[in-house]
Computed example of a mutant assay.
Amino acid sequence: MPELPEVETMRRGILSIIGGKVTDVAKPPCARRPILLAPGIAAFRRRTVDRRVTAIDRVGKRVVIVLEGGDRIVLEPRMTGLVLVADPPTREHLRWEMSLADCGVEKVWFWDRRGLGSVRLFSEREFVAEFSESGKIGPDALVISWQELRDRLAKSRRAVKVALLDQKGVCGVGNLYAAELLHVAKVHPATPCEALSTAAWKRIHAAMVDVLQEAIKYEGSTLGDGTYRNALNKDGGYQNCHRVYGREGELCRTCGKVEVIRIVQAQRATFYCERCQKVTL
């Protein structure tokens, strides 16, 4: 589930390790489905121990730990992964840990209940090839201009909600925030991209930035299953601000006139208000 606001919260939650020296990297015993860990732990340890952390970045829905010399540890939470500096929710789902000195933080953990996430180590050149030159990742949702957003998506015949989930077009937006931002923009989620006007693209872009920044301020959304937690193993707060997501059958919080509707698009649940989000451009 973690999308841009949750992953950005994870990134900010481990900023205190900058300047710290890696003293060990380990793969805790885990009887659950294994995550992707590359390279193997022995090679991982050789390339990271005694290196200092120089920066903490983010690429879309991934936290990036930059080490002196240019190597980068990329932590991808996928559905249920967490990046933590406090005690994890459980020990049985710990997948990776990094011990540090000289920064006030003893360990960074990667915890993943379902085992769909990954921890990968890249050289600087490998990182650029994978995340900049491959075309797999589009511009970040908080950086892209409205013109580029329009130019990258406007020719598509796909529904705008579905197109926003394609990380090649714009990265960081997932199912939850796509529904929320389209509600704020007053755009019906089934509208084909090619049918949207320039004014609609401007509204979508403005809503995307506003919703994501607001969600970051509240440290992301912890849904009913309680899986998402910040780096200190605490709930986010933005779930209390959701306008439509997960509110099927409730009165729309914007208009207060009609109930929120749930439909399925590309095998994902979409929530919207038919009064606020009419099929008009």
Rank of each mutant, 00 (worst) to 15 (best):
E3M: 05
P5Q: 06
V7Y: 05
T9C: 14
R11M: 13
I14K: 08
R32M: 13
A38I: 00
A42M: 06
F44P: 00
F44K: 01
T54S: 13
V59Y: 03
V64Y: 05
V64F: 09
D71S: 11
L75V: 14
P77E: 11
G81M: 06
L82C: 10
L84Y: 09
D87H: 08
P89Y: 07
T90F: 09
E97S: 15
M98Y: 06
L100G: 02
C103F: 08
V105G: 12
V105N: 10
V105M: 11
W109D: 09
R114C: 13
G115T: 07
S132A: 14
G135S: 09
G138V: 05
A141K: 00
E148A: 13
A154I: 01
S156I: 01
R158I: 01
A159Y: 01
V173C: 04
H188D: 14
T191N: 11
E194Q: 13
A199I: 02
V209P: 00
V211K: 04
G226N: 12
N230E: 10
A231E: 08
A231W: 01
K234D: 15
C241D: 11
R243Y: 00
L251N: 12
L251C: 07
L251F: 10
R253W: 03
T254I: 08
C255R: 00
K257G: 04
E259I: 01
A266G: 07
T270A: 13
